[in-house]
Amino acid sequence: MAKKLDDKLIKRLEAIANECRRINATGNYGHGGGTASMQDIAVALYFYKMKHDPKNPDWPERDRLVLGKSHAAGALYAPLALAGYFDKEKLVPLYGGNKILADGWMTPFQMHAEKWATPGIDYTGGSLGQGLGFACGLAYGAILKAPKPLINLYGNPRPDPGYKVYCIIGDGELSEGWNWESAMFAAKYKLSNLVGILDYNRYNMSEDMSSYMEPIVEKWKAFGWWTTEIDGHNMRDICSALDLADNVSGAPKMIIAHTIKGKGVPDWEAVRNHSGNAPKEPIDTVIPPIPIPPED
């Protein structure tokens, strides 16, 4: 059932994203900058848009989330924990080194998000530029498996697969040519159940890429994708764009989310690189807690 996008819900999503940033900032994790830049998007997906069930991570009818920039795994682990996929306490081994917990879990959190390891993760990544192609395969497979009779994918109408595939890609990995192979494929087969979200924080590990990423919107349009641009840290913007994408048929969709590397963690935001050393100040000073309002 669709959730009502009102002020109360926006406040709740913002509070969840804040808590996720607190979890990741204390983790001393290697890719803090890119984790923080996509955090709001991930929270909007898990707590507003996506159809999923923490009690049944392998539910076949769930929406999928493919993370191309899998090094930002913490941006998924934290919301998955808060959603109830696993205890928040279990996130500790990711940052604290390998440990076997009392109930037998041994670091289920890989440094790069991996499906086999962690409930709720839909793609095993690490090497960049591959998530979008995998997501294309998922989206195509979802249509093939749709319960309605098959209709030639070149034509309309087409079967409704009943679930969608979301794919978060990083702008750094967009330099990998494979993305553009996948972009052509998705447009050829009009994979409208595929929604890409570009975490456009402009920085890879060594430079500001905007000079050669631009014109980014025109690139995706030229490849046959429906596109829109949003502020990737404005929760209402993110949710609205995700809703808007639902109403577009006949093409894959790319939401260009303008983001800030390290967003919400002052030390990280100041340098805008990939690093993510834990702030020296107490976390409650750096990122004050915001109580998470209960869901209606």
Binding site: F134, C136, G137, Y140, G141, L144, S182, K188
Partner: peptide, 27 residues
């Protein structure tokens, strides 16, 4: 084969990637 013949064009990497995605869906 109809829609079960999936023609990516000359792109081996993406062919591998979509193969993974398709197989993830039980194909």
């Amino acid at each position: 084969f109809k829609d079960r013949f999936i023609a990516s064009g000359i792109q081996e990497a993406n062919a591998a990637l979509i193969s993974g995605g398709l197989a993830d869906q039980g194909l």
